[in-house]
């Protein structure tokens, strides 16, 4: 395992990402609410450039079996990245598919040192 500087905190604004190549692999590093998340730029579905996809909120729902009312809530607090190829969405914090806990993007630890964004691979 090695540490790799992929840029500085000035290179990526909140809600955006940078994509760097580390040891032949494309790695996307997202900045969300001041936290950094790194994933391989290779969608778990069919290898699409997942880290180049848009970020969007997620919809949750709650069904009341007595009143039969369905309440839907859209939250921009829980962002997901959507693959530009097939729209598979992964939670930006967990790296898991938004409907399938068993599907996950490979992720890597990220930390900041002297304003440098460092990915451990």
């Amino acid at each position: 395992m090695g540490e790799h500087i992929v840029g500085t905190v000035d290179d990526v604004s909140d809600g955006d990402r940078i994509i760097a190549e580390i040891e032949g692999r494309e790695i996307g590093v997202f900045c969300v609410d001041g936290e950094y998340y790194a994933f391989v730029n290779w969608c778990a579905h069919q290898g699409g450039p997942i880290c180049e996809g848009g970020l969007a909120g997620q919809q949750t729902g709650e069904f009341n079996e007595e009143t039969l009312e369905l309440e839907l809530e859209w939250s921009d607090d829980d962002l997901a990245v959507a693959c530009p190829w097939h729209d598979w969405e992964f939670d930006i914090k967990s790296g898991k598919h938004t409907t399938r806990d068993d599907i996950e993007l490979p992720s890597y630890p990220v930390h900041i040192e002297d304003r440098n964004i460092i990915v451990e691979i």
Binding site: H45, Q58, Q59, T60, G61, E62, F63, L70, L72, A80, H86, D87, W88, E89, H97, T98, T99, R100, D101, I103
Partner: peptide, 15 residues
């Protein structure tokens, strides 16, 4: 379909 349009399945926690 559920994986491609996950926002259309807010209640389902399984495939």
């Amino acid at each position: 379909e559920a994986k491609q349009e996950p926002h259309e399945f807010p209640l389902m926690d399984k495939a």
